[in-house]
């Protein structure tokens, strides 16, 4: 695809590691409008289908002794449920469906993005920024609804000496507003970097002399990326839980 777009003018080696992230229409060659069906749309839809396949189709038999596919759904459920319960406490459990939605979306988008020729939706800041902002806004609004102005106690470290408190409040405030930035860039950055590195190694494979090394490197990177795909989904979800905990129990 890369060579198609740029031609073969560079001779031996072609490095276009970022081309895999280009959003383009599925049909035709026109501009990308608001409702255009793009490759991003396709892979978002496949993510939805994958979630439905695991969580709905897999559990459709409601077996007491679960089948393999049902076990996967139950494991995901138990994993996120326990995370929500452990981090936010009993009163956070009612937000479990939202967090489950986030987790299932991110983890399956990450894994689908690892398929060769696929499009990694979570490598785009457009996606992760919306996810992070949704979490940030929800948590902030929820914090004020639940605690009123007592939510501001989150920034007032009552255990610190009085003189230090204003300074700490400024630091806490900055760190609070940096949260959505780090939250979104961490996910997209990890996914993008891994995919780009794999593409760079793939570019080296054009040279016969280093292609075996390149293939080994791609395999190793791929293994690492499989880990990253899960770990980043986990990190994204658990940070969401931590932020939610702050909203529900703002004391330190």
């Amino acid at each position: 695809m890369a060579t198609e777009a740029h031609g073969a003018e560079s001779g031996g080696l072609v490095f276009h590691p970022m081309d895999q992230f280009i959003v383009k229409p599925l049909f035709g060659d026109g501009p990308v409008g608001m409702f255009t069906l793009t490759n991003a749309t396709l892979w978002l839809a496949l993510t939805v289908l994958a979630v439905a396949a695991i969580m709905v189709l897999g559990t459709s038999r409601r077996a007491i002794v679960p089948t393999r596919s049902q076990s996967v759904g139950e494991l995901a459920y138990g994993f996120v449920y326990k995370m929500v319960e452990d981090v936010t406490g009993k009163d956070g459990v009612k937000y479990f469906p939202y967090i489950m939605t986030l987790f299932m979306f991110v983890v399956l988008a990450n894994f689908l993005g690892l398929l060769p020729m696929s499009f990694a939706t979570t490598s785009h800041f457009a996606v992760t920024v919306i996810l992070a902002m949704a979490v940030f806004l929800t948590v902030t609004i929820l914090g004020f609804i639940k605690n009123g102005t007592a939510f501001l106690g989150l920034f007032w470290v009552s255990s610190a000496p009085l003189a230090l408190r204003p300074v700490l409040a400024v630091i806490e405030l900055i760190s609070y507003f940096v949260r959505p930035v780090s939250h979104s860039i961490r996910l997209a950055g990890n996914v993008m970097a891994g995919h780009a590195v794999i593409k760079v190694f793939a570019g080296f494979a054009a040279l016969a002399a280093i292609s075996p090394l390149s293939i080994v490197a791609i395999s190793a990177m791929y293994g690492l990326e499989v880990m990253v795909a899960f770990i980043q989904a986990y990190v994204f979800t658990i940070l969401t839980c931590v932020y939610l905990k702050d909203a529900l129990h703002p004391g330190h």
Partner: peptide, 23 residues
């Protein structure tokens, strides 16, 4: 705009599939 629109669609669909059926 395109990505955000389809992302929101996907999230809403996943949310309803999960909260109404799967969970």
């Amino acid at each position: 705009g395109n990505q955000i629109f389809w992302l929101l669609v996907a999230l809403v669909v996943i949310y309803f599939v999960l909260s109404r059926v799967a969970l």
